[in-house]
């Protein structure tokens, strides 16, 4: 194994890892937004919104994220959507992650005992007051772990945007293989950096989960 080479290219991989982190953060934020909207739609009192929410989830969970990215990035210009690779990556992955998060958020909300809403409504709280003050604070605590799983998947999914030539970790590894012919070392290095990012994220999620639990 060529450690010297790995040490030499390491700084460039760090730059690429920074791009992966930016992608992950933006994707997570967009995913959370879409997930919140999706879950609200799925739990709406209006049948049309429920249908749209369900359709969103089944379309984006029912097709490969790579195809979604390709349609957005390569097919987009055909219908007037011009995005650079990074933008397409964030938007494509964010909407995809949002479909999974929709189910996570919805799952946490519906798992709260219906007696909780009843008790709140009995006291005179409106539907929205009950949701905001009684259901969501409890559901949010239940969401931390499963959203952590979504986050883990999403970080790994950022590797897909290499296919639309965003210069992140995976793409960078491929590029250095072209000049060094050392795929083992290059992918190992990329994998190592992914692992560090994911490990740190996992620790943060565990910490947050502990912090929000009621003792």
């Amino acid at each position: 194994m060529d450690f010297d080479l790995m040490l030499r290219v390491y700084p460039f991989f760090l730059d690429a890892a920074w791009v992966t982190i930016q992608l992950s953060v933006l994707t997570a934020l967009l995913g959370l937004t879409c997930g919140t909207l999706g879950a609200s739609a799925r739990l709406s009192r209006f049948a049309l919104l429920r249908f749209l929410g369900a359709a969103y989830v089944s379309v984006f969970r029912g097709t490969p994220a790579l195809i979604q990215l390709f349609i957005l990035y390569f097919g987009g210009p055909q219908i007037g959507i011009q995005l650079d690779a990074f933008e397409a990556g964030v938007i494509g992955l964010g909407i995809n992650a949002g479909a999974y998060m929709t189910e996570t958020i919805r799952g946490a909300i519906i798992s709260i005992d219906k007696g909780q809403r009843e008790a709140a409504r009995t006291l005179g709280l409106s539907q929205w007051q009950a949701t905001y003050n009684v259901i969501l604070p409890q559901a949010a605590r239940l969401m931390v772990r499963p959203l952590g799983v979504n986050l883990n998947m999403l970080i790994k999914a950022t590797a897909l945007v290499a296919a639309i030539s965003v210069v992140e970790l995976t793409y960078t590894a491929q590029r250095y293989i072209g000049s060094t012919y050392k795929p083992f070392e290059m992918f190992l290095l990329a994998g190592l950096l992914y692992m560090i990012i994911i490990y740190a994220t996992g620790r943060a999620v565990t910490w947050l989960d502990r912090k929000v639990q009621i003792t």
Binding site: Q116, E118, V134
Partner: peptide, 9 residues
Amino acid sequence: FQHFNLFPH
């Protein structure tokens, strides 16, 4: 209620 339904948070 039978099952109290106190707000646990």
